[in-house]
Structures are given as structure tokens and as C-alpha cells.
Design a protein around this nucleic acid. Sequence first.
RNA 1: GGGCAAUUAGCUCAGUUGGUUAGAGCGCUUCCUUGACAUGGAAGAGGUCACAGGUUCGAGUCCUGUAUUGCCCACCA
Length: 889
Amino acid sequence: MKSTPKAPEPGPDLSKAYEAKLVEKKWYQTWMKNGYFKASSKSKKKPYTIVIPPPNITGILHMGHALNDTIQDILTRFKRMQGFEALWLPGTDHAGIATQNVVERSLREENLTRHTLGREKFLERVWKWREKYGNTIIRQLQRLGASCDWDRTRFTMDEGLSRAVREVFVRLYDKGLIYRGNYIINWCPRCQTALSDEEVHHKDITGHLYYMKYAIEGSDEYVTIATTRPETMLGDTAVGFNPKDERFQHLKGKTAILPLLNRKLRIIEDEDIDPKFGSGALKITPAHDPVDFLLGKKYKLDSINILNPDASLNENAGPYKGMDRFEARKKILAELEDRRILLETKEHVHAVGHCYRCSTVIEPYLSLQWFVRMKPLAEKAIQVVKEGKTTFVPARWNKVYLDWMTNIRDWCVSRQIWWGHRIPVWYCEPCRAKNPSEGLIVAVEEPKKCPKCGNAELVQDPDVLDTWFSSWIWPFSTLGWPEITAYLKYFYPTDTLVTGYEIIFFWVARMIMSGLEFMGKEPFKTVYIHGIVRDDTGAKMSKSLGNAVDPIQIIDEYGADALRFALISITAEGQDVYCSKEKFEFGRNFANKLWNASRFIAMNRKPRLLKKVPTTAQLSSADRWILSRLHQTIEKVTACLEKHRFNEAAGVIYDFFWHELCDWYLEIVKGHIDSPGVQWVLHEAHDKTLKLLHPFMPFITEEIWQSIPHTGETIMRAPWPKAEKKRIDTKIDAQMQLVIGEIQAIRNVRSAWQINPKDSVKVVVKAGRDKELKVLQNYSTIIAQMAKVSSLQMGKNLSRPKESAVASIGRVETYVVLTGLVDVKVERQRIEIALTDVDKMIKNLQGRLENQEFLKKAPKDIVDKERLKAEELANRRQRLQDNLKALTD
RNA sequence: GGGCAAUUAGCUCAGUUGGUUAGAGCGCUUCCUUGACAUGGAAGAGGUCACAGGUUCGAGUCCUGUAUUGCCCACCA
């Protein structure tokens, strides 16, 4: 802190330090107030649409959301600036099981359960909960800077979407694509509902394989079977073996006796039974195992359900009735052991299904459920991806999608919970009593009476639909479907879907199917799949693990822009992100740099000089160089964004702004910053960089942009910069590269000899060729200024001054005069190191140039380049040796 | 059992059509508080690109295999 500033702070618009909180609040309110986020279907522009992956109403913003939504915001803001009518449609998901669990947990604190409350009262509580907490994540998204059209916010249980859900159910039912039936499904005993296959998370568990003997009726023989879940034996109705298995031929047609319960079991033969597994013989439990279920159907076996919905054993379990499944397992094993029926116990690793919501071990469970027939829906969905109408980025996910789609199985959509879309099916009991296949009414609106018999006492199916049954129609239900609104017509199909790979099957694949089925068109063109955000040890971030870096905390401390920029920068295409708090310092530092450079530019701005575009002649080489770099940057950033290479785009801007504009251009022009050329160029580069950066860092760029001369109300709607080919000058780029190299060479010597940065040095430059000499002469002022040189002599044939150190780059030799400082030993060492380097390179290069094959087969420009290099290196080597010799003399 | 990713500097990671002396950020060393910025500036050290083969004039990049790690899918009880 300076105690007595000589002059009042210029550039009054930008405060000394960037205050993220105030700025973010101010601009977000302004943007909202002015309706900048809104998209209209009446626009003449081309539409660009993204629908948000609706976060659960139970959710709070975590880093995964922050990444997901930052990407969407970047795309939306980019396209908006490019002149599209950009719609980012927000909303939330009612999250059936998750929300019900949360509310039930809060009921428990009041010693209530949903059952004591009753369905209606319970649902009231859930709605109340959602009013209170359901919008938390929306507010958090706003703090992130999300430019969603909030007036269009939808909720999967709002009226329109609920109507769309029923419509979809009815249409699929009428087409024969929805059916009800008794099948083995995945049952969560804790949530007490069926789950789809996708909702079961398989974990490898080291369990046991128990070998036990079942007696054969009318003999003293027995058959050995192996199982991992011995308690299911209580539901056994058969024993099976492979017909080719020699070991069991004598059992053909016989009957086995189930231990403990003494039930008679048929012995069947089936090709699908693997003789190599366990003992080769299989116990068959049709009600509690998917394979056994199929065998049961095939051989018309009885199914005996031994479990209650909470996975305790029911009356069919005889003496074990009322016991928990795992307790029963222990008890049964003990008894089997006592009776010497248990022969052997082996360790066995197998995949055990767990509930994706509560991690409880799933039970395969026979029950009456509703299913969607998926094969017919999958056909077209396979086609559009094969034809490239919808593409995954990165492309490897195309294959994952197609594999799953090709092996798709029917989707169990009924859930035995209360929070969700009630299945639009009503039953007429009198009709059903007459004929069980009748008396079922499937309708969008609740029917008043049975159309068959006129009975008005209809009973609605108690189940609700899978949460994903409302999200799979999200891309069009949110746009007004089943009404064919102008809005729907204009914005559908959407353009980009941004999501993580964990919900490709749950959500993305199903949306493609439903979009094709109900809209006749794929719902999006590109599916951008990003990685999962993990903590720095690689574990998935979660609140329960306590390893989560809270994005809101980062926003509070470093600002939303810092969070966004850092997050995007460390996320390579489709790779998982390892995240720690320190990584966000990167974003904060960049925001700080941007802010301070902007202050510096503001302090030195002469607004009257900005009006006229200078002619090329009015621009210095440095001016033309930074313009050239600017336009290359514009070109690259635009291309990267089109290709979804967000981290690369961020990196390109970062490098340009920090390392070219600030480190070089600003330092070069500091002495003559009032010149018209510099003023214009500086403003141009600053303005365009802010625009390029806006999708990444919306707040700080708006704040700065508003303080500089500009036209238009907001940077949000300023036109995206266009790369002008005529400004790109690769000759100038090469010249500057040489100059920068020369400056760095001098600085290197200065640093090696510990010359005080305040002191000037004398330098003699020997450039052997006109080409380099001319360039260096043209830029001599810059070189002198940047390397702090008081006297700079340049020529073709200058000799080394006494007491000087040498630096070589290319064909240029630079002598820095070090009167009284030169230590011959040290300088010799420096040269020797340089010599070793050069020798290594020469050796490497010679190998190539002596290779006839290389000379024959490599492209000419490559060979020429290598020759030139070799020549240069040889030259340098010679000069280094000369210098070394001079030192020794 | 099938598939996919990853393996590059002390750490975290970039490196898309094979072709300069393989890059960045953090950390480290030395110097610098000069009126934009110490959340900064200058200079520097640090890598046989997991391993073994192969294709090629040329491989971090392509192919095959191996190892290690992680993830996804799969009804072997």
C-alpha cells in the first residue's frame, strides 16, 4: 500500500480490487430485469436450444452440477453472441424415491410414518417440502451465472408435464407397448418398491458358496447343490442339471426332498445349466431368482414367494416366518450344519445388486408390475445414431450407447411409492370379477364410470411411475407437448445435450427413443458427455464422504467466474476431473490479472483517440503483432467452442491475454501508450478478449466491458468477434518470436550473472545474416527497453567485447558486457553446457540427414527444415567453440 | 466374462489428422515490492512420454501384447 499516492487514481470506474460478490449480484439482477436470458419463438434468428438435465429438487449444487451447467452456459452465451436465438430451458425433477426418502426421514423425527399419515396427507407434506426447499438448486444455479430463460422453468410434476406423462402412457398402451405382468423384478426392501435394471448398482462382494445335499426320494442317495443365498431354499420347487452331465443321469425322473421343509422337488434337465459351476446341479427358486423364474415358466413349476416386502420371511417360510432374510440365512446355515446337510463353504466373489438410492441389497422378487416394451422403440433410436443424426462427443460413447440399445430389455416403470405420477389406469372390479383380462381403463383423464358396465366406483392403480418416465420426454414436454405450440415447433429439436456418462442409459438413450416415437425427430443433434468430478484422491465427491468441495463456498471466496474458469480449464474432453480447493486459485489468479490489466488500460485510456481505425502504416510492428495474435486467438477460440473443446478454448484465451498481451505487448507499449495506434490496438484487443472470455467469465467481463467505451447494452448480447484474415500476419509473428528470443537471451545472461534489474547493460549483437540483423535493428528500441540495455550495438561482423558473456540463439550471437564481473571459469562452464546441448541435437539430426530413406521418402519441406536446422546448429556450435577458445586464450 | 478409459516433470494434468529442442498450472531454486497486478514480474532446475515388440524415413501420437489403476456392462446359481 502506498501511503501518499502522487496522483489521484485514474480510471475511476474500476475499483482497486475486484469485488466479485457485489459485481455478480448487480449484473445478475440487471440481466434478469432486462430479460436478456429470454428466448422468443417469434424471433427471425436461428434457434439454438439446450434443455437442462433437471436437477433433483432434493439436490444442492455440487461440483458435478457446476461443471455441467457451466458448460451449458458457455454454449448458450456463445451461441447467443453468435446471433442465435439461444434458449437454455431450466427445470427440476421431482425425483420420486429420493424425495420421498427425504420427506420420510423428516417425518421420522416427528415419530410419524407415511402410513400413519395416509397417502393424501403425505403428498401434501411432500408438496410443502418442495415449496420450501425445491428451489434451492435453482438459486444456486443463478449464483453460478446460468443464463437460463427462467420464465420457462418447468417441473416434472407441474400440470403440463403431468398431462404429457399420461398422454405418453396411454399412447404406448394403445400401441401395445405397455403391459402389466408378474415377473421377477429388482426389489428394494428398504424403499419397498420395484426398480428398473438401471437403478440397480452391482458391486463385487466376497460372499460364500454353500454346498448342501438334497436327499433323493426313495433312496439313500442325495444330490449336491451350491448356492450363495441359502435362505432362498425355502422357496425351491425343483432341482436341475444339464442333460449332458454324466454325473446326474441316474437322477432322471426322480424326486428330491427339500431339507428342513421336506417339500418334494421335481428334478428337471436343462441345457442352460452350467455343469462347471458349483456342483453342476442347481436348486430352482422361481420366485426369487431371474434364471430360476425362466426355468419355472419353461417347466411350469410352482413359484413360492417366501418374502414380505421388507424382506422378512413370510408364512411360506414355515418356522422361519418373521425373520429378516440375513438372520434367516444364519439360522438356516446353522441348522443345515447341525444336520450335516451343509457339506462345504467356499469363498465366492459375485456381483450383488444394490439400490442406487439407499444401497440396500436388492432382492429379485416376483410381483405384478407395469413394463414398457423397449425393442420396438429402440430400433429407430439405433438408426439415428448409426446415421450420425445424433452424435455423442467424445465419439466412444456412440458405441456404449449402441451396445446397450441393441441388448435392451423391457423397462419396469411402476413404483410402489406415493410421490410421483400416478399410473393412469383404473380398474372396474365387477368387470374384472367376470373376466380378469377386462375391467381395465387406461385414460389421460380420470374416467367417471366404466364404459362397459357403467359402474362409477373405479379404483385407480396405486402405483406411480418411475421418475425417469417423466424425464425421458423432457426435451418436448417442456416445450408444450402434447400441444403443438409455436414454441415447440421453433425450438425442437434441441441442439446440444450436456450430461455425464452415468445417465446415458437412464436418460439420454430413453430421450432419443421417446423423441423419435412422439415427435418423429431425434431430440438433439449432439450429446456432449463430460466426466465426473472427483476429489483429489479420485473418489466420487459426495456429501456423506465429506470430501466435497462446495462450489458455493468457492463462489463466496473466489467468485463465480474464478470457479467457472478453473473448472473448465482443468476438464479435458470427457475425462474425469480431480478437484481440490487449490485448483480454483488458478481461476482467481486469472480473474485478478484480468482485472488489474483492465485497470491499467483504463488508467491510460485516451477515449478521443479511439474513434478512428488507424491505417496499417500508422501501426507499429508490435501493434501489428498483437493484432495478428488477437485474430488468431479469435479463430482458435471459436473453432474450439464449435468442437466442444472447452478447456482448450479457455487455455488459448489465457495464454493470449496473460502471456502475450500483458507480458509482452503491454510492457512494450508502456512508454508510448498515448500514441493513437497503441490506444486503438489496446482497446481492440481488450474489447475482443473480453467478448471471447464472456461465456467463461460472464460477470467480470460485463463489469469491465461496461467501463470501457462500448456500444450496446450488455456484453451478453454483443456480437461475437470475427477473425479477420487480413490482420493475421505470420511474418510479423516470426519477427516477434526472434525479438522475444533475443530479449530472453539477454535476460538470461543478466540473471546468470546476477545483474541488478535496475542496472542497465551494454550489449553487442552479432547477426551473421541480413535477415535477422534487419529485424533486430527494427526492433532495437523494444529490445533495449525490455532487456534494460543502455547501449545496443548491432552488426554483421562485430567482435566480442572484452569481459563479456555470450548467448546464442539461432544464428545470432549476443554479447553482454560485464565489466569487472566476468569469472572465466563460470562463463566457460555456461558455454560448455550450451555446447553439450547443441552436440546432442546435432547428433540427433545428423542421423536423420545421413539416412537415404529419410531423404527419399520424407516430404521436401520437412527435409528442408531439417537441413536448415542442421546448418544453424553447426554454425552455433562453431561460434560457441570460438567463444570458448577466446576465453581460454 | 465382455467393453472403455488412464499410465507424460516432485504433484495435477494438456498434447485430434505421425514431422522444430515434448508443454501448462502448482510446487521448487535465484533475483525483484519499478505508480495495473506479490492472487505479481524476470530467470532457472526438473521428463529414456508404464513396459516389450511391430508398422514407418520418422512414434508420446498408429498396431499387437504385458503390467498397474479406475469405471461401465453381464441371469453363472
